[in-house]
Simulated scan of single mutants.
Amino acid sequence: MNLEKLISHLEETHAKLKLSLPHRLRPYYKNLNLENIRGALIYGQRGVGKTTFLLSISREKPFLYFSADHPFLLTFPLYEVVQKIFSHGYEGVIIDEVHYAKDWSLHLKALYDDYPHHYIWASGSSSLLLKMGVADLSRRFVQTRLPLLSFRDYIYLTSEIFVPPVEFFNFQKDHLELVRKVNILKFFREYISSGTRPIFVEGEYCKRIQGIIEKSIFYDIPSLMPQLQSNYLRLMYAVFGYLIGSPVPTINITKLCNSWHIGKEKLYHLLSLLEALELFKIVRKKGDKSVLSKGAKMFINDPSVYHCYRGEPGSAREAFVVYSLSEKYEVFASSKEGEYDYMVNNIKLEVGGRKKEHKGADFVISDDLEIPVKNRIPLWLLGMLW
Rank of each mutant, 00 (worst) to 15 (best):
N2F: 08
L3T: 08
K5F: 08
H9I: 10
E11K: 14
Y29E: 09
L34A: 11
G47W: 06
F53S: 04
L55F: 03
R59C: 09
E60D: 12
Y65F: 15
L78G: 02
H88L: 12
I94H: 03
I94V: 14
Y119E: 00
W121P: 05
A122S: 11
S126V: 00
L129S: 02
L129T: 01
L137Y: 01
L137N: 02
L137M: 09
R140N: 07
F141C: 04
V142W: 12
T144R: 14
L148T: 13
E160N: 15
P164Y: 10
L178C: 05
G195F: 00
R197D: 03
F200Q: 05
K215F: 10
S223N: 07
L233A: 02
F240I: 04
F240M: 06
Y242S: 03
P247A: 03
T250I: 06
T254Y: 05
L256S: 09
W260G: 00
S272C: 10
L277N: 04
L279F: 08
A296L: 11
A296H: 12
I300H: 00
D302E: 12
Y306F: 05
H307Q: 11
E312L: 04
P313F: 05
A316F: 06
V322Y: 01
V322F: 04
Y323E: 15
S366D: 04
V373I: 13
L385F: 14
